[in-house]
Design a protein around this nucleic acid. Structure first.
Length: 481
RNA sequence: GGCGGCGUGCCCAAGUGGUAAGGGAGCAGUCUGCAAAACUGCCAUUCAGCGGUUCGAAUCCGCUCGCCGCCUCCA
């Protein structure tokens, strides 16, 4: 069975066949590093992380690059405001981004190129575009001529005349056409610059990706990803300049674009002031719940980040780890057998088959919850001494399936202890206080003072702490908000 | 104005021709001193509406209504 991917370029699902069988070159647009990254960056990163993980899981040899745009007007402006060198600011936000990605269990791409490290290549490509008549230099700036490419607009489905009638583009009298975009911008005094045949300057936005792709992956690649908003103009321009420079078509075989994250039904935007930073989201929710939330919808659909959906996701993660704890307590030998999964290959294939259809992580997640129900049922049956025999096998098969899925979903890959220690750190109530009250309640229960016991339960619940009694004692956890 | 997408139960969300996954919430039951968790049962004869194609459609086509994104920096 071959993988099918939705290609933004053709607007169809296509069989995934990389240029070189068994090998995949993949490039995803990373952040412009001038501020803390937000939940939208998280979605893109997590979506493509699960995709590259899955391709590897299926045995492809993947070469995956995600860039950092570390030279840009926004970076320069922010650096000036703070009075620090632009490069220092960029480096700082690269570290912050990496921190967030690590928290979200996003694997490091094989290559993480920075725009400023590909200046030589950028100049080289720009020069070749001028030579080929696809670009022109004016007063130290270099522009790409959109009219020089007959199929300009093929990715976004736009045509040049429609775009111009929109009149929402800068009118620069020096440009041959209002839609022409900058490949190279001359620097103003005080701005960072690199020497070039056109004088001191810096690269335009779109050219950096072309240069980095060519420098690290090749003149044509299999997959290029990014947010839907990048389709126009960024990726459209990238195609134009890349294909013009190399004469090779297509520059990218499969274009993949992830949908947007809304916040409580509203688009995230600076004007609404509802930009949600990953760092802030991590205060309220575990990284795993955020990741599960992101993977619970198809990567191309718009999703709505709400308190309710995150609470649902947290409950889902908790359900998994509670189930694992149950297995550990009631049938520990099942945990030892989970590496034997060749015997459940058919069930694995069935559970993971949605990934073959344009990486449908949402359906796989649904299948994993079915396995959790099976496990709990098996445990109940075993306890009651009923149901078919082979509970241990049943448990280890289900665990194996979830275990395998965790390799490409990047969730359900911790121990229950790690998860609960993460979750239970989210309370302002000191652990000693909780422990003290629990001890008091145990004493009250022992002397049948249930009124006192219930009062303590209530008191802690009001503070967001849930108590659970079991034959082994009383445990506590932070209530899911 | 141009281009694209979406509308599935209380909420979230799969399902693109074969008769509605899954999660959360809710209700009832088992269990529990009480809870929690878990399990069991209930919870869409129906997939925005109306037509059409088909033996058969949430899935294909047309129209209508509603929502959204891009066209400007943006994941």
């Amino acid at each position: 069975m071959s993988i099918k991917v939705y290609n933004s370029l053709t607007r169809k699902k296509e069989d995934f066949e990389p240029a070189i069988p068994g090998k995949v070159t993949m490039y995803v647009c990373g952040p412009t590093v001038y501020a803390m990254s937000h939940i939208g960056h998280a979605r893109s990163a997590v979506s493509f992380d699960s995709i590259q993980r899955y391709l590897r899981y299926k045995g492809f040899e993947v070469k995956y690059a995600r860039n950092y745009t570390d030279v840009d007007d926004k970076i320069i402006n922010k650096a000036n405001e703070e009075g620090v060198p632009p490069q220092e600011l960029a480096e700082r936000y690269i570290r912050e981004f990496d921190f967030d990605m690590n928290a979200l269990h996003v694997q490091l791409p094989d290559i993480r190129p920075k725009a400023t490290e590909s200046i030589k290549k950028i100049i080289e490509v720009t020069e070749s575009l001028i030579k080929k008549g696809a670009a022109y230099a004016i007063d130290g700036d270099v522009y790409y001529s959109v009219r020089s490419k007959k199929d300009y607009g093929k990715l976004s489905g736009k045509n040049i005349d429609d775009l111009e009638s929109g009149a929402r583009v800068d009118v620069d009298e020096r440009k041959n056409d209002p839609l022409d975009f900058a490949l190279w911008k001359s620097s103003k005094p005080g701005e960072p610059f690199w020497e070039s045949p056109w004088g001191g300057g810096r690269p335009g936005w779109h050219i950096e990706c072309t240069a980095m792709v060519m420098e690290w992956l090749g003149e044509t690649i299999d997959i290029h990803g990014g947010g839907k908003d990048l389709i126009f103009p960024h990726h459209e321009n990238e195609i134009a300049q890349s294909e013009a420079a190399t004469g090779k078509t297509p520059y990218v075989k499969y274009w993949l674009h992830n949908g947007f994250v809304n916040i409580e039904k509203e688009k995230m935007s600076k004007s609404l002031g509802n930009i949600l930073n990953i760092r802030d989201a991590l205060v309220d929710h575990t990284a795993e719940a955020i990741r599960l939330f992101l993977l619970s919808s198809h990567y191309r659909s718009p999703i709505d980040y709400t308190r309710d959906s995150l609470r649902d996701a947290e409950a889902g993660v908790e359900r998994f780890y509670k189930t694992v704890q149950r297995v550990a307590a009631e049938c520990p030998t099942a945990l030892e057998a989970i590496s034997c999964h060749s015997c459940v290959q058919e069930r694995l294939d069935e559970a993971f088959s949605p990934m073959e259809d344009d990486f449908n992580t949402a359906e796989v997640v649904g299948n994993l919850f079915k396995e959790m129900s099976r496990m709990n049922r098996a445990l109940d049956d075993a306890k009651a001494g009923k149901g078919p025999k082979g509970h241990k096998e049943e448990l280890s098969y289900s665990l194996a399936i979830i275990n395998e899925a965790s390799k490409f979903l990047g969730i359900f890959d911790r121990t229950p202890e790690e998860y609960f220690s993460d979750k239970n750190s989210r309370t302002s109530v000191p652990a000693e206080e909780i422990e003290k009250l629990i001890a008091e309640r145990i004493a009250a229960r022992a002397s049948k003072d249930f009124a006192r016991a219930d009062a303590i339960r209530k008191e802690l619940l009001d503070k967001g702490i849930v108590l659970e009694d079991s034959p082994k004692g009383t445990t506590w956890s932070v209530k899911t908000q």
